[in-house]
């Protein structure tokens, strides 16, 4: 029980840490890293639901979900990285001022 608990709290901590970084960090790569840490946190939480000291009672469904989740997260990360490179290529910068573009990028460009 205690094992489940500490790992799941760690998962939540990772999620929150990643969330903070996602909002506060401005470099694109770090934002993608933050997303990855968040995902790891969620996976940790999911796996703890499957955990049982007795191997016969292990729940395979969350494990399968996490496997799916890992592949999805690798795919999205890869796409995000390509897109980040592209952003740097076209705009010359890989840094967002912040996630929320208040008053930004609303220019009247064609």
């Amino acid at each position: 029980m205690i094992t489940t608990l500490i790992y799941s709290v760690t998962g939540i901590a990772l999620f929150c840490m990643g969330f903070t970084a996602l909002i506060l960090c401005s470099h694109l790569l770090r934002k993608i890293l933050a997303i990855n840490f968040m995902a790891s946190g969620v996976f940790l939480l999911l796996i703890t639901t499957a955990y049982s000291p007795d191997p016969a009672l292990l729940d395979p469904v969350p494990q399968a979900m996490v496997l799916t989740g890992i592949v999805v997260s690798v795919s999205t990360t890869a796409l995000a990285l390509v897109l980040a490179c592209r952003v740097q290529e076209t705009t010359g910068s890989a840094v967002f001022k912040r996630l929320l573009p208040f008053r930004k990028n609303k220019g009247q460009k064609d």
Binding site: V71, V72, V74, S75, T76, A78, L79, V82, L83, C85, R86, E89
Partner: peptide, 13 residues
């Protein structure tokens, strides 16, 4: 999803 990521990556650059 995996296929989509390569599709997207190819479409981007």
């Amino acid at each position: 999803v995996l296929f989509l990521s390569i599709l997207g990556a190819w479409s981007i650059g």
